[in-house]
């Protein structure tokens, strides 16, 4: 099996020709308020200090040995919270499997965290089970996480239920985490919304939604086949999806649904961004980080594609 992380990286570097990768790094770094890898102060040398820490120029100016002090680097922990239920085996809006997009999104954020020197952990699962991999550094670890996500999504597996994973985090994980949730375009019910609110209170939360397939595609676009709901197993015959009355009602109801979702995330104060396909992921991550940094969630901060980044 080819390395999943390499695939993520190669896509990122293709992206880097258009945007600068460092810009992404910067966006990531600014997520944490207390920046720490910084020079703090100079103080007099005391026995036991590392000799290589002596600032020779300052010593020469001052006359007595001075030692550079750094604020101790605090390693952050990033938790990838990924839905690996049956729903993720379905098609995304772009026609890819939602799982692939989720892996890609998790990979991008995990890689940024790795470059920043943070630890990356994983919590994934479905309605039946939640699995936790504690945060660790290193690309090998990240690769392992991505593979776990990739292999956990199965059509025959239990259905998705992100509330289970949210509950797990709130129940068992202590300490402030940067949580990157990757799920599909579900509509949170009251219970889930409460969990999300509590999560938001305890942790930094970034929410990346993988957009679901268009159920009533226009004539001539892809998706010209009967559909089957992976959740219920119910089929949707193509002629019905093509019916103009049904499609009009569907479009209207989707607009309403998108508005509801947006309202929920705004109410919760969680930065949310959507990715329709794997091409969208980097732009979405960039916009997401920016949204999060700006703290406020303006109604329409950035049109998709993030022209500001260019």
């Amino acid at each position: 099996m080819p390395s999943l992380l390499r695939r993520v990286k190669s896509k990122m570097f293709i992206f880097a020709h258009r945007r600068t990768l460092t810009l992404l790094d910067g966006e990531y770094g600014s997520v944490f308020k207390g920046r720490s890898l910084d020079f703090d102060e100079l103080r007099a040398y005391v026995l036991g200090d590392e000799v290589r820490d002596i600032d020779w120029k300052a010593t020469a100016r001052h006359g007595s040995p001075l030692v550079k002090r750094y604020v101790a680097v605090r390693r952050h922990s990033v938790l990838l919270l990924v839905d690996t239920g049956r729903n993720m085996a379905a098609q995304a809006l772009s026609g890819e499997t939602k799982k692939d997009i989720a892996v890609h999104a998790a990979g991008v954020l995990g890689y940024l965290a790795c470059r920043h020197g943070d630890d990356v952990g994983l919590l994934h699962g479905n309605a039946a089970v939640s699995r936790y991999v504690p945060p660790r550094g290193g690309e090998e670890h990240l690769e392992r996480l991505l593979r776990e996500v990739d292999s956990s999504v199965d059509l025959a597996g239990p259905p998705s239920s992100i509330a289970q994973q949210l509950d797990y985090v709130l129940r068992y994980l202590k300490g402030r985490l940067l949580i990157v949730a990757v799920a599909d375009e579900f509509l949170p019910d009251t219970h889930t919304e409460n969990l999300m609110r509590r999560l938001r209170a305890r942790h930094e939360v970034l929410w990346l939604s993988v957009r679901d397939a268009d159920l009533a595609p226009e004539r001539g676009r892809h998706g010209q086949a009967d559909s089957m709901d992976v959740g219920t197993g119910a089929g949707i015959p193509l002629p019905l999806a093509m019916d103009s009355a049904v499609r009009a009602a569907y479009t209207e109801s989707m607009t309403e649904r998108a508005r509801k979702r947006k309202d929920i995330f705004r109410r919760l104060g969680i930065a949310e961004e959507q990715a329709a396909g794997s091409e969208d992921v980097l732009t979405a991550v960039f916009t997401l980080l920016e949204k999060h940094r700006s703290g406020a969630l303006p109604a329409r901060s950035a049109p998709k594609g993030g022209t500001r980044a260019g």
Binding site: M88, D212, Y250
Partner: peptide
């Protein structure tokens, strides 16, 4: 068949 999730987005519509 095309595998999709959240089919109730469409199937719950009275028009459907």
């Amino acid at each position: 068949a095309r595998l999709i999730a959240h089919g109730d987005r469409l199937t719950d519509l009275p028009e459907y």
